[in-house]
Structures are given as C-alpha cells and as structure tokens.
Design a binder for these strands. Structure first.
Lengths: 200, 200
DNA sequence: GTCTATAGAAGGATAGAC
DNA sequence: GTCTATCCTTCTATAGAC
C-alpha cells in the first residue's frame, strides 16, 4: 500500500525544511515535491504553514529519536555505542552529500526567536531526545543528574558537529565529536566504583 | 564620529540574520532597521543580498573570533578558560533573551546545501575559529592533531549547546557543555607527561 | 550618494468547481 | 478529497530623479 497524500506532504515538507530551512521553503514547492494538489495542503493543514511545520517537526523528531534505542541496544558498552552513533551519523552525511544531518536543527534556529509555536515543537523534540539518552546513561549506573548532563552534552556536540560538517563539507568532524564524547562517557562511568554500577 | 551608512547596513543585516535567518530577512527590513534608504543597499552591495550576506558573515565571524584571545589571555589555565568561555556565552544568551548566540550558525545551516557562495563564507569563518583555538591548545603542549580535534569539539559543542539553549530557553545547557568540554581539555592535557609540555 | 517608485517573480492563503 | 484559478502581500532587484 502506498503513502497517503497527507503522508507525502509531510515527507516532502520534512525533506525540504531540512535542506532549505523553514523560511526558504514555499508551500507551492512542497505541493510540487509531494506531489499533491496545492489545495490539499490546506485541506489537511487548515492552520497553514505553521501547522504543517509543527507536524513535520514532531514526526521527524520521533523518527530520528528512534535511532537511540536502535544504536544503544546493539552495543552493550555505552561508550562504544556513543561512538557508533556518531559514526553512523557521519556516514549518513556522506551518503547524502551533507544534506541528511539533524532533521530539525535548521528550523529550530530559524524559529527560536520568531515563532513560539514552532519553537515549542522543537523544544519538545530536543527534550525527548535528551530524556531517552539520559535513561540509557542511568541504566549504566550514572546518577540521574550526571546522566542528564551527559545527554545534553551529547546532543549538543552532535548538533554542532553537524553544523561544522555541513558548512565545511567534512564528515570527519562528526567522528571527532564522537571520539571526544565517547571519552567523556567513559570518564563519567569511571567516576563511580564498579560495584555501584547497575547491570543492564 | 558616527557609523557610516554602509556600516549601519552591515550591522542591521548581522542582527537580523542572526535573529531571523537569511531567508527570513528581507532587504527592505534591513534598510528600515539600519536605517538607510533602500537603494543604498544596492549602491554598496551591487551583488545584492548574497554579497551583503557574505560580508555580514565575514564581519560577524571576525568579531566573534576575537573573543578567543580575549578569554584565553585572561586566564592561564586553558581548561578554566574553556569553561569561562561557555559561562560568558551563557550570560550573553540570558542578557539578550536568547538571541545573542552564534552570529552565523542559523545562516550556515540555511545555506549549506543551497548557496555555495555563502556556504564557503561560513566555512572560512568556522575554520578561522578552529585554527585560533587549536593554536591555544598547542601552546599548552598538545600535539597539533590532538589540539585541532579538541578545537573542533569545542566549537561543535558550543554551537550545539546554542541550538538547545535557544530552542529550550535554558542557558544552563551552554554551561553544562562548558563543564564537559573543560573536563575533556583537562583530560587531554594529562595524557602527556608534565615534562613534555611547553610553557607559554 | 540619497531616495522613491515600480517592475516582475514568488510568497501564503482562499474560493469554488468537480 | 482533488484540483485550478486567483487574491493580496512580500520579495529581490532596477531605474532614474535629485
């Protein structure tokens, strides 16, 4: 069964917003890319571009967040899993000619000071990613506060490495960020005696 | 002596691009904000919006890069200086209601896949920041390669923390990033025996 | 160099036939 | 639910008087 018109609109919006940003993408362009009749966008999203934008942010954010369990379930050592996450991100960047980085970062920066509805949508996505990561770190024996700090740092360095890599066209920056982050995770785990670590 | 018309145009463009992004800012808005007659923009920047954008990126990048010597000259311990850099950035965010973060990151993401002229301008700015930071780390005894990796990581985690802080309206994320980065710098310095460190 | 007016294209959004 | 036509605004850019 093929995708519905609404799904195609959301997917086209996601691809264009990620690549060109929110302001840089027109509704007509989304309709052409979907493809879908122009009027159908307003049929499914009566709130217009903002409503579509919020939906795209939520859907893209949920999809990307699923990479966390995918990568961390596959590797018992969290420091290695952390490094693997960045290696995967770097490879995705290369395979997409530096387009496939964070699905919402460009929009997040564009709307942070200009569109409260969309800013809140991006904030909720970031919070969900931080929570998911912090949960992983907690399972490995880190206290809640420390786990959250590491999670914030990991999302931050990943996002920033995406900025550098896309601008400078060098995916190794993401891998370098991964090495530094993995070392930080390893160091945090060593802060506590081995006996106090929970086994997963 | 007051600012020239051209300077006012560049400054207005810098403020608006940082806040609203490149696509989200109109030439007329820049003229109104400067303030300057609309035609004057094209008098000083015959290449239009792209030429103005490239100039804004270069000027803003140079100005922000000057914070590196400012912060690192004031504190001999590089790990502490690193932390101080992030504390200063967090305070600037708070003082500006989360507008005054990286002057070029929003534009960098917007143009990375759509405007090669501006992408190159942002890449040159990032490269200059990385070089300046790596130089500081080298002065403290780190080998060139390691120094550059740390510099990339530091710019990355700062940029990403800006994204999170602006979206989530919480400047502490920048401070958390600073603590993690300062620890990474401290750990890197300890990798080598004390005797092999160069004194500045 | 300053400023106004306007061209020509593209933007978001709506109406209404089918 | 699909699709076209169109409204009105805004955009970048240019022309030309002063």
């Amino acid at each position: 069964m093929s995708a519905t018109t609404k799904q195609r609109i959301v997917e086209a919006g996601a691809a264009l917003f990620r690549r060109q940003g929110y302001s840089g993408t027109g509704m007509k362009q989304i309709a052409a890319e979907a493809p879908a009749p122009f009027g159908s966008i307003y049929h499914f999203f009566p709130g217009g571009k903002d409503e579509l934008g919020a939906e795209v942010i939520r859907i893209s954010g949920r999809a990307y967040g699923q990479l966390v369990p995918m990568v961390f379930d596959a590797e018992p050592d969290v420091a290695i899993a952390t490094r693997n996450f960045f290696i995967g991100a770097a490879n995705a960047l290369r395979a997409s000619e530096f387009e496939d980085a964070c699905p919402i970062a460009t929009v997040a920066l564009e709307v942070a000071s200009t569109n409260e509805l969309l800013r809140l949508a991006t904030a909720e996505v970031f919070e969900s990613w931080i929570k998911a990561l912090a949960e992983r770190f907690k399972r490995n024996g880190l206290p809640a506060r420390r786990a959250r700090e590491l999670a914030v740092a990991m999302i931050a360095i990943l996002e920033g490495a995406f900025v550098l890599s896309r601008a400078m066209r060098d995916a190794r920056h993401v891998e370098v960020a991964g090495e530094v982050m993995a070392a930080a995770v390893r160091a945090a785990l060593k802060e506590r005696p081995v006996g106090s670590r929970k086994v997963r």
